[in-house]
Amino acid sequence: MGKRQKWTRGAVVTVPLGDGFHTYAQMLEDPEYAFFDCKTQDALPAVTVVSRPLLFRLWVMRYAHSTGRWPKIGVAPILTTLQEPVWRYNQDPLRPQDIRITFDGCNGPLGSLTDCEGLECAAVWDPEHVESRLKSHYAGVPCRLTLSLRPRVVDV
């Protein structure tokens, strides 16, 4: 692992993908990252990274950056669209018929399975799971972790 790092809003980090490839993410509001579509073997400047298309935004465990697993390469302005909160869903494990549509993972109106389409689950990801999701994306195959987090249909 690399040098220990603190959270820096706007910092761009390198996310390893294996086989000499990597991509990049930007630190938003702790613990959220924006992941950009830029699989490469080259070192890109932070301002170039944030001009690439957005893949997704996820909450990620602190040790992704604090251990230096994802090293910082610089800081770039956060795009206005990335400063807005993102709707996510949270399915109650004790009352699975209750699905909340929320910004913060806890509070929000009840929603339906249809309301969850296109939304991320309100979950904090381990960095290795994010790396696996990115590898699946670039391989053009479904990510089993993302599929496992989809809301499930329940009989009431």
Rank of each mutant, 00 (worst) to 15 (best):
L82M: 12
F56E: 06
D92E: 08
R95N: 13
N90Y: 12
L58D: 10
R69W: 08
P93G: 09
L79S: 15
I78T: 07
T81L: 10
P93F: 04
P93D: 12
S66R: 04
D98Q: 06
P93L: 07
S66E: 13
V75F: 04
T81P: 02
L82Q: 05
D98T: 06
W59C: 05
V75S: 13
L58F: 07
R57I: 04
W70F: 14
T102P: 12
Y63L: 12
Y89A: 00
L54G: 08
F56Q: 01
S66G: 06
D98V: 14
T80Y: 05
R69D: 10
I101L: 13
W70L: 05
R62G: 15
Y63V: 01
H65V: 15
P77D: 03
N90T: 14
W59E: 11
H65K: 05
I99Y: 02
Y89C: 01
T80K: 14
Y63I: 09
D98R: 07
Y89I: 01
I73C: 11
T80D: 15
Y89E: 02
F56D: 09
P85A: 13
L54K: 09
D92C: 07
V75G: 05
L94T: 15
I101P: 15
R57V: 08
P85L: 07
E84C: 08
I73N: 08
P77R: 10
L82N: 14
E84W: 05
G68D: 00
R69P: 04
R57Q: 08
Q97K: 15
L58T: 01
T80C: 06
V75E: 15
W87V: 00
R62I: 06
Q83Y: 09
E84K: 09
R57K: 10
T81G: 03
V75P: 03
L58C: 01
A76R: 13
T67N: 13
D92R: 00
Q91T: 03
N90K: 11
L55S: 05
N90P: 03
F56P: 01
P85Y: 06
R57A: 06
P96A: 09
Y63P: 10
Q97Y: 14
K72F: 13
Q83L: 14
V75C: 11
F56C: 10
N90Q: 11
R69Y: 05
F56Y: 03
I73Q: 10
R95F: 05
L82A: 09
Q91A: 04
W87I: 01
I101C: 12
L58P: 00
P77T: 08
M61V: 09
P85S: 12
M61W: 10
L54F: 08
P96N: 09
P93E: 09
S66H: 05
P77E: 01
A76P: 01
A76E: 05
Y89S: 00
I78G: 05
P71C: 10
L79Y: 07
R95Q: 14
R62M: 13
M61S: 15
T81M: 12
W70D: 01
L94E: 15
Q97C: 11
P96R: 03
V86L: 10
R62H: 11
W70N: 06
P77M: 02
Q97A: 14
R95T: 14
M61L: 14
P93K: 06
T81F: 04
P85I: 04
R95A: 13
G74C: 12
G74Y: 11
L79P: 15
I101Q: 03
V60E: 03
T67S: 15
S66K: 07
L55A: 07
H65S: 10
